[in-house]
Amino acid sequence: MKFKAFLTENGVNLLEKRFLPALDKMGKICHLYLNRDHAIFLHNLLNGDGVQSIAQFRKEALFDDYRISSQNEDRIAFAVDISLLHRALRSSVSICTEFGNGPTANRLQIKLVKKLPPNSTQPMPFLTFETKGYKSAVIQDVPISKPMSRAQVLELQTALDMAQDLPQTLVQVPDLNQLQNFVDRMRHVGELLNISISKYGDLHIQISTTLITLGAEFQKLLVLGERADAPSEDLNLSAQTRSARAILRGDAQSVQVSVKHFGKSLQCHLAKPDCAFYGIAPQGACLTVIFQFFIPGSHQMDKSISLHCRLPVLDQGSG
């Protein structure tokens, strides 16, 4: 089992400044799954009840000189502490920039090693960051779990395949920051969030307890997938009535998720996505958020990077 690659400058930027801070909010521990073409960071795919997040990079997006081999079709997966990974990367970067001279002088190598830690007789696996300076080399070892067995990797791959189903209707959230601000404040009022998404481009979120109902409705959002025109007779109704009628007509779906989970999914704005879409998976299986990234300087989707989250549904609601 071997893995060795050089992080590109772009890859370092993507991870250090954007993705690792976002993924850190999802949970301390994640699985890093590497195969011939992709590096994938996975949260909560095997243990069911949290927010699942999947950040997938084509190898060229992060690395050059990417070498991987294992007896399991060149697939390697292990668990790693995101904050440790982030720290190691950050300090490697600072060494690189501090002592760097010339574009090729310092390259950040990342590789899988087995080492004997101090005061131990058992060799342990590490993900090692190696920065070569002019006169010195700095090596940082990030402890990782024992690489997953063939059966575990298969389980992870199956869970990953299962997590690819797309909602029939997705609506674009106009301003993630604003929505996050709102949800952060809503959190004081209740714990369960009802979300309904319609084919008309409406996103309606609501907390309802015995003492208070608090909600927000965003209308005329960009719709991907199945869409419909909003009936004109609904125009002057309240948000609640409108979404109830859309659900009855079969033009909207509604699910209940935890406010905490929803807030976590919004933390992905730290990864600086160019747009975000919310949708409800078929049969109300989960609430899906898909983040899109553009090729810098364009409005074309960068297909080498993808990030999406799946929020567990606490109650299937109606529709």
Partner: peptide, 11 residues
């Protein structure tokens, strides 16, 4: 705002 609305009902 026409396209976004926050509302609340307090008992």
């Amino acid at each position: 705002s026409l396209d976004a609305c926050i509302y609340a009902e307090i008992r």
